[in-house]
């Protein structure tokens, strides 16, 4: 190899520099394009849902949201029953799921012996990854028959007779229904919420907890007066993420809710949720108005979950800022 002259080397470096600048521009534009694509996907989702739902919204107007009728034969559709089912099943899931998930997270971070911490945390994270259809078929084949035979008759005989709230627990024991669906949802979101709560609890500086212990605080006092106040926003964010998941969950619910478009006073009776209606009816929906009404349901679900997830995200960001300084 012969030695380059100084000029030749300089011009080579210059060429390479320019090639680098061109490559830089291209690569930057490429990554920018794909980042933009993420925005376009969300934009596309919103626009396509509105476009698809438009015929239904035009035909029924705002009454769509408050009407309980769902009659494909006469072409009358209203979203109230699925919206009600979605909210009630998610509420049941949260009522059961949050306290249990909180207990699990407290156990892992504060009580558990060190050797058990990692296996338990890993197990919970693995369980959070199990697809929801698994919980769904377990609910259908194992849990619903069990509930029908052993749990529901007892509930109907005791709680069902209390004046006032008795109507909530009336009717024949069917196994499937709103309560069963809510319970399956609770089991499904449980690992999810407790994994987030555990992560959030770990952000508490050990110094804070040790100071409290040093002053003679008991474990429960440390949890209530040090850990929870420090992580409040994060806990709420985690709960909202779990709620977002419960609201939009399809398969775990579809198997056990019974798909009945009506609002029963009793939570033991079948009902439906937005996602269950979509899963059960969409491919068989005949006529444009029927299909459009289902898409309109999807749009409503999207709006509800978007709001919940946005709140969750803002909460978790606040915790991050707090932990970062």
């Amino acid at each position: 190899m012969t030695a380059e002259t100084v000029e030749a080397a300089a011009s080579r470096a210059d060429r390479q520099g320019r090639a680098g600048a061109v490559g830089d521009g291209i690569f930057r534009a490429l990554t920018f394009f794909f980042a933009l694509l993420v925005l376009l996907i969300l934009g596309g989702v919103i626009i396509s849902l509105i476009a698809g739902a438009w015929p239904a919204f035009r035909a029924f107007g705002p009454a769509f949201v408050i009407s309980e009728v769902w009659n494909p034969v006469t072409g009358k559709f209203g979203a109230l029953a699925p919206i009600y089912g979605t909210l009630v099943t998610s509420a049941i899931a949260m009522l059961i799921g949050i306290p249990v998930a909180f207990g699990v997270a407290v156990f892992i971070t504060e009580i558990s012996p060190v050797w058990l911490k990692r296996p338990l945390a890993t197990m919970i994270e693995l369980l959070a990854a199990i697809p929801s259809i698994i919980y769904g078929i377990w609910g259908l084949f194992v849990f619903a028959p069990f509930v029908q035979q052993y749990i529901q008759p007892g509930i109907i005989d005791t709680l069902g007779n209390i004046p006032g709230i008795g109507a909530l627990f009336a009717g024949p024991p069917l196994g499937i229904g709103v309560l069963t669906a809510g319970f399956i949802l609770a089991i499904m979101v449980l690992p999810f919420i407790s994994a987030i709560m555990r992560d959030v609890f770990e952000t508490v500086p050990p110094m804070l907890k040790e100071s409290a212990y040093g002053l003679g605080a008991t474990r429960s006092e440390v949890v209530w007066q040090v850990v929870l106040p420090f992580t409040r926003v994060g806990v709420v964010g985690g709960v909202m993420l779990g709620l977002g998941r419960a609201l939009g969950e399809t398969m775990a619910v579809t198997f056990v809710i019974g798909n009945a478009h009506r609002i029963s006073a009793s939570i033991l009776q079948p009902g439906t949720t937005i996602s269950a209606s979509l899963a059960n009816e969409f491919t068989e929906a005949f006529g444009d108005l029927y299909r459009s009404s289902l898409i309109a349901l999807g749009f409503i679900l999207f709006v509800i979950t978007f709001i919940v997830l946005a709140i969750a995200k803002v909460m978790l960001l606040r915790l991050q800022k707090q932990a970062g300084g």
Binding site: V38, V45, L49, A51, G52, L247, F282, G298, L301
Partner: peptide, 27 residues
């Protein structure tokens, strides 16, 4: 711009998957 993309991406991360199905059905 990055902040917005990050926010939207996190929404997409936990958006109900059945909505994605509806979107692809439409397009």
């Amino acid at each position: 711009f990055g902040e917005i993309v990050r926010f939207i991406n996190d929404i997409l991360l936990s958006a109900p998957s059945i909505i994605v199905g509806l979107f692809v059905y439409e397009i």
